[in-house]
Amino acid sequence: MIDEQRVVKVGMADLNVISGHGLIRTTGLGSCVGLTLHDPLKKVAGLAHVMLPSSEIAREGALNVAKYADTAVPKLLEEVLALGACKSRLVAKMAGGAQMFTFARATDTMRIGPRNVEACKAKLQELGIPLIAEDTGGNYGRTIELDCETGTLFIRSVQKGVKEL
């Protein structure tokens, strides 16, 4: 019998978790950052598709915590812990944070990719979760997929094909 792989999809400015067999995926990361947490023993994983660095700039009524690095990382942690992950075993990986377009006059908005990466790293450090691999920066889009069983992060881009972290 062919084992149908279960795939959990995560949209832009969203997060989700998975346990056991299967993959968790998000597509078309540009300046956004895809951040994963994984507990290799419990086989629990979570993925957040972070769009902006800080919720301080938010002007929305009901805050979407998955959208901002400073709120998404703690929320993702909370959700993987709820699925049985152990905090001391958690490892993080991330990809994305590209600068899709380069302009002569780079404003802060244009640098959003690197700022997202920095904000995610700062939050991980604050929470004491080690970042064990990353594929960030550059000027190209990425689709990422984490294998919940092995913790391998597959990164696909148009120009560079598939890379494993």
Partner: peptide, 22 residues
């Protein structure tokens, strides 16, 4: 600026301003 890439990666650039509101 020109880019040949995934639509999601490209278009998300145009959504940052709206991102702060919803």
């Amino acid at each position: 600026a020109l880019a040949l890439d995934m639509a999601g990666a490209i278009l998300s650039y145009g959504l940052l301003q709206f991102g702060e509101m919803g």
